[in-house]
Design a protein around this nucleic acid. Structure first.
Lengths: 198, 198
DNA sequence: TCCTGCATAGTCAGCACTGACTAAAGGAGC
DNA sequence: GCTCCTTTAGTCAGTGCTGACTATGCAGGA
């Protein structure tokens, strides 16, 4: 199906995409990722950034162009994307968009063990989640509104729109789940099967 | 906020939960994870299972009980959960349920780069995704129906229900996105800004 | 009787990732 | 002109994870 990528870390895709624009040194890349808020959807730390760029260089997707010593700053290596790198971006992007991947949200694991908790405790923690989700939904909406007010086109906000859709779906799910757990027959059957545990 | 877990891998939570039931050897644990389909929501391979159990033992959440040499099979070490382990399961479970974590779905990264693709190409790949999503939705529904027919209680299917809710939300999102991309003014503005690239 | 394939059970080398550290320059405050 | 904090820029040790490998028993066919 999907052949394994030479550098599977999604951070690598973002790096390649920025280098499509112009050559840059790692620190600059990191700054742009932060500034444009793209780091909200990618697991990003400075050390992993350097690691990933090293891997990209080994794979031949980028090349070290020059080592600049601007005035007196620590020296910075500027990287440029290669032809192979350009190809990789497009191929990877198409495949990520076309094929849903198995994702493993932590919440799903927790849900599969929900029966371990007494019903009232389960309801309590899920209420806390619901409130937290409401907060995130609010935040995301604000971010998007502000961006739109700054004239950012909708196409550059699709990933936020997607995050919002998922958050809202999860919130609906949690709300319904809480209702189900509050039914007296659930409490009863839980007592019968799990009540006598250590 | 959330203090870091000694063994953060979610597979560890599943392992501890099974050991709550009775002591077991690693291979047996793996078999049960597969049989009950819990491996669909956890990143699971045999090697990571052994690694995780080793980590749990170091952390004091499980202890090696005995090394059995049943007839002639390779010897198997049986592990039991400790008091600390029991505590960890409940604490971890509660915190996973109560606090939404930052998840980093690959699709979000891809979406943030959607503007790189020509509109008609974007529409084409997203249509493929939509079809794939429909397939998964169908599969999940079937799995759940079969389980229910076998008398499995709803509480043991919540994680599937959750997966279904997310899949359906994503499908709706993709459908709407395709419609937006098909608008002639998007093609026009894409031509203007991106048309003249390499 | 031998061979092949499959299920059981576990090990390990190599690489990826993270948190913590280094180090120099710029600027604020006194 | 001195001190201290922040920003810029990058390194590295330690640990975690994955794919590929090892090894044994057993069933069934030729």
């Amino acid at each position: 199906m999907e052949r394994r990528r030479r550098v599977p870390n999604p951070l690598a895709l973002a790096v390649l995409a920025w280098l499509l624009w112009e050559p840059m040194h790692p620190y600059e890349l990191g700054r742009r990722l932060k500034q444009t808020g793209k780091d909200r959807h990618i697991r990003y730390t400075r050390s992993s950034l350097y690691m990933v760029i090293e891997q990209l260089a080994r794979a031949g997707f980028v090349t070290a162009q020059e080592t600049v010593r601007d005035s007196a700053r620590p020296e910075r290596t500027v990287y440029a994307i290669t032809e192979e790198g350009r190809h990789e971006v497009h191929d990877w992007l198409r495949s990520l968009l076309a094929q849903p991947r198995e994702e493993y949200p932590h919440f799903a694991v927790a849900l599969s063990l929900l029966s371990l908790l007494p019903p009232d405790e389960a309801v309590e923690v899920l209420r806390r989640r619901s409130a937290a989700l409401a907060g995130r939904i609010e935040e995301t909406r604000t971010t998007m509104d502000e961006a739109r007010a700054d004239g950012v086109a909708w196409i550059f906000l699709v990933e936020e729109q997607y995050a919002l859709a998922l958050l809202e779906a999860e919130r609906r799910f949690v709300t319904e789940l809480i209702e189900s757990l509050k039914q007296p027959d659930y409490a009863k059957s839980w007592q019968e099967t799990m009540g006598g545990r250590a």
